[in-house]
Design a protein around this nucleic acid. Sequence first.
DNA 1: CCATATGTGTAGCGTATGCTACATTTTCTA
DNA 2: TAGAAAATGTAGCATACGCTACACATATGG
Lengths: 145, 145
Amino acid sequence: MAHHRWIHHRPAGPGRFFRKVRADHAAETAQDYVEAVSDIVHRQGVCRVKDLAEHMGVSHVTVSRTVARLLEEQLVETEPYRPIRLTAKGEQLAAESRRRHEIVYGFLLALGVPEAEAGPDAEGIEHHVGPATLRCMKRFLEPNE
Amino acid sequence: MAHHRWIHHRPAGPGRFFRKVRADHAAETAQDYVEAVSDIVHRQGVCRVKDLAEHMGVSHVTVSRTVARLLEEQLVETEPYRPIRLTAKGEQLAAESRRRHEIVYGFLLALGVPEAEAGPDAEGIEHHVGPATLRCMKRFLEPNE
DNA sequence: CCATATGTGTAGCGTATGCTACATTTTCTA
DNA sequence: TAGAAAATGTAGCATACGCTACACATATGG
């Protein structure tokens, strides 16, 4: 175990890194939800709390609380006991999230990761991919553009 | 955390993916902390609450609470007002985490991501990289092994 | 050896996310 | 169309992770 392994790329203030990771976490939920709403609306016409609960794998209680938060952030529109729609802002975020998701997922497949693992991994990874990393993944997928 | 819920009732939809992400998230903190303890011990001889607080970018309160949890999980040993050491189990987890971190970070660099972004991104990504994805990244780094 | 500085623990608050149990509304169906 | 079923909301609890403020322990220097 050479000592250099413990000295390298953790420049001054590693705390900065973890701060960024925590900030990313705060935005993850919103992205996952708007993407899910978009998915469900496109597949079924309307998106209900129940659909979101199944899609996210949580109880309907967690969903309705989260939807209330997205409502405050003006990412979705809804009224009690009514379906959930995306606002323009929500649509935009969903589109960006989907684009990133597809790049990451496609990238993992291109790298040779089997589908069974690429799905879950992409789901977790996509929220931590910065713009430069995303560009590199895209370039890896389409070298001639 | 209510792990038993995931054992009893496990739907087959996309919810599985998000469940995995949440499970990963639950283990992130432990991994980050044992890795940090390992870092600090190797650099300074002993690891104190204060060092961890600076390293993670949080207050000492958050650290001591988290350390209490790691103590229950038998990943670290310590007594009040004393330095923090890793148990054998903790050392093992730290080694695995570090290995994964190195591979992910090196992979991003090899992909062409500038250091300034590869650091933070690796910090977030490493916790969501499954075994197959890790193998693919390693293969990308060392095609001849 | 005491005074002060530094480090750590504890109390208590806030947010985000999970849940169950129960109340209410909407929808379906007999 | 009334009653059952399904969907949604609300109450209340738990955990994880942030924080500030204050209390206590330890280390250090005059």
